[in-house]
Amino acid sequence: MNIHDHESFQHMIDESLAGGIAGEREQSLREHLDTCAPCQEYLRASNRAIAGLGGFSFEVDPSLNAMVLASLRRPAPRLNTVQPDHRRWALIGVVAVVLTMGGSFFDLQFGRLIASAFDMQRMQVQQGLLVYWIVPSLCVLLLFPLLPLLSKTGAYREERTL
């Protein structure tokens, strides 16, 4: 038998140890092993190395479990950080409502006064307030219910990356 045959059977031994091989190949390997001393030796040394890996016993700090469990208990309040988030969204909502109402109130109360002070038409003041104040505030107000959802989607993406 030439050396390439041994190499091929020894590779089969590796495959068999790593994950198993299909029935037919296993049968041919068994038959070969019955008559081949070098391959028997190869298998025996491999098995001994694998068994040797079981001869290690690593010391584990007896207090490690307690430390781990204590640290798992500790972050519990941190898990409730959703509360400040809710508060923040609520604050943004209130600000948007106040700004929208404030803009409309400002227009009604002071629109005429500003128009005469700056020698402008009342309509121009109204348009300015509408474009630069009331509409943006209204947009924030309308988007407000979506903000927590967008925030959760971001958090979910981060979680998927583990």
């Binding site: 994950g19 030796e41 190395a49």
Partner: peptide, 17 residues
């Protein structure tokens, strides 16, 4: 699989012969 083969190849000589 090839990492396992190479790992075994490194350990096996300790028990050869």
């Amino acid at each position: 699989a090839s990492r396992i083969y190479r790992g075994l190849a490194t350990l096996r000589p300790q028990f050869k012969g």
